[in-house]
Structures are given as C-alpha cells and as structure tokens.
Amino acid sequence: MSWDDGNPYVDELAEGVYAYVQPVGGWMVNNCGTIVDGSGSAVLVDTTSTERRNRAVLAEVSKVSRGAPRAVVNTHHHPDHTYGNGFLPRETLVIGHEKCRDEVLAAGLEATRVITTPDYGDLTLRPPEMTFTDRLTLHLEGFPVELRHVGRAHTSNDVIVWLPDQRVLFAGDLAFAGGQPFLLEGSVAGFRSAIAQMRALEPEVLAPGHGPVCRGEEVGVLLDDLDAYVAYVAEVAEQSYAAGLTPLEAARANRDNRFSGWAETERFVGNLHRAYSELAGNPVDTRLTVPSVWPDMVEFHGGPIGCLA
C-alpha cells in the first residue's frame, strides 16, 4: 500500500454513510466520516486539524445533509481528529470517551508547538461535552450507531464507530492504511486486542483514520498486516531490550524490514519506546508524550519530519 498525493475526496460507504478521505495522509492529515439518517441530519466522525481543512469538510457535509450536524464523535483525543471541534456550530454535540475529554484538556494546543509548519487558523479548544466509559448507542432515524471503547490501544481512549445494519466500521487511528500505526500513547498488547475486536465484527467496509477505505477482502488483509506489524514491534523490542539497546539504536539496527515501505517510518522509534516501557514493568497507563520522543523520531527520520496539513 502507498499514499496517493491527490486531493481530498468523498467515498460513499453505504447509503447515507460517507468517508471524507485526505489522501496525502501523514501527520495532522486524517480522514473523517459523515452519517446521514432518514431525517437528513448528520453525525460526524472526527474533525481535522486546521481551519481550512475543517471548512472543506463542512462544505462537503452540507451537500448531503440538512442543517447543522447533530453531533460529532471523536474517535480519540489526537489533535488531527479534534482541533476542528471548535469550528463546528455550538448546537453540534461533541461526543467522546471520558478519557478523550481529559486528554484534550491536558494537551491543549501543545501539538501546534511540536508540528509548527501548518497554518492552523483560529483554533479554539473544544473537548467532548458528552462522555461515556464503555459503550454508547446513538439511535438515529432508521438505524443505530454503536460507539465502542476498545481499551488502551493507539491511545487510552480509542473508540470505534460501528454501523451494524450497514456493516461499516469507522476505525479511527486503530487502522492506518499505508502508514505505520502509532502506539506511543497506547499499548502494544492493547493494539492487538483492538485489532481482534474489529476483526470479530466482520465489517464489510472499514474507514481507517488515515489512508484509503478498505472493502471486502481488503479489510482482512489490512487488519492482518497491522497485527503483523505490532507483533514485529514486540519482537524487536524484546530482543533489543534484552541486548541493552536504546529504542533509537534498536530502530536503526532493524531499519530494513517488511514494513519499511509504509509511510511515517519514524513511528517505529516511538512504538519501541512504548514497548520498552511495558517490558520494564511500568504500569500500562504510564504517560509517554510525543514531545518527549520527537527528537529520537527526527533523528531516525534523518531530519525534520514533514507535515502537509
């Protein structure tokens, strides 16, 4: 799989269900979703990172729905999925896991000081206003939308958006199609558990947080590849930790691997930091932040990490 450098586009996943795909992918450039029910009102899945990009998303939403979006579901707290909350109408309810709210408030606008190249616009922090701990079902006109917390995986607060009638799954950043997933703020074992939970649903269509939509057999291939990647990270970490290598040294020693063609290879270093923390016996909720490992990631990358947001 590889990234496409084209413009954002809308992919209809089922009747009234759409993915807004930003093919450039990468840091701060994510996918969003729109679910339109029988009344014509919309529920969004995530926002994006800059004012310009969110204006473009809302323009597309207005073409397929009526009135202001009823709600937006944040699949997790990362800024590419939540910074756009502040550009939504006040009557649009922001929904997320309870830890998503905590993390949005804790992080603030920190990402703008780490990834400095984008023009973010006039950002206003807006955390979820309705939170839940395990599951929440939105009963739209004509069908349900299930929100499921899958445990600590990509972050502490990952939520999948499952439409059982349509067999459509919005996976957030539990699925990167074409790019390396990021486990730094989550859990190695937890990410594999989340993959198993998604596989058990047997979705016919999967919209990842980054990369193109997968359909049919592509869904299983993507989940298998992601699981194999996380297993590889765990294997490298175990061997390298025992050998006394740092995460950066371990990444360098294993730079050439079957996943090195995926985008954002610098995440390999961050993922090893998380795996090392788990091997050291630290609690699963030990906080590891992007700013704390960013220098290692930049060094592994070989220079400044680009962002096209």
Rank of each mutant, 00 (worst) to 15 (best):
D11H: 05
E15F: 07
A19P: 00
Q22C: 15
V24K: 15
G33E: 04
S41H: 12
A42L: 10
T47N: 04
T50A: 07
R52I: 04
V57Y: 12
E60F: 02
V61W: 02
V64K: 09
A68P: 11
V73F: 02
T75Y: 04
H77A: 13
D80N: 10
G84C: 04
N85M: 04
L88A: 01
L93V: 14
V94S: 03
R101V: 03
D102C: 01
V104L: 10
L105N: 08
A106M: 12
G108F: 05
L109A: 13
E110M: 15
A111Y: 14
A111T: 12
V114A: 09
P118F: 10
Y120M: 02
P127V: 03
P128F: 05
E129T: 12
T131Q: 09
T131H: 05
T133R: 15
D134H: 14
L136W: 07
E141T: 13
R152L: 15
N157I: 07
D158T: 12
D165F: 00
D165K: 10
F170P: 13
F170D: 11
F170G: 13
F176T: 10
G178W: 02
F182G: 12
S187A: 13
V188L: 15
S193A: 15
M198A: 02
R199K: 04
A200Y: 00
V205Q: 00
R215K: 07
G216N: 05
E218G: 14
G220T: 01
L222R: 05
L222I: 00
L226M: 07
L226Q: 03
D227I: 05
A231W: 04
E235T: 09
Q239C: 04
A242N: 09
G244Q: 11
L245M: 11
L245P: 06
A250I: 01
F259V: 03
F259N: 01
E264S: 12
E266H: 11
V269D: 08
V269L: 00
G270T: 02
N271R: 02
N271W: 01
Y276E: 03
G281N: 08
N282K: 05
D285C: 09
D285Q: 12
L288F: 15
S292R: 07
W294E: 09
D296T: 06
I305Q: 12
L308R: 14
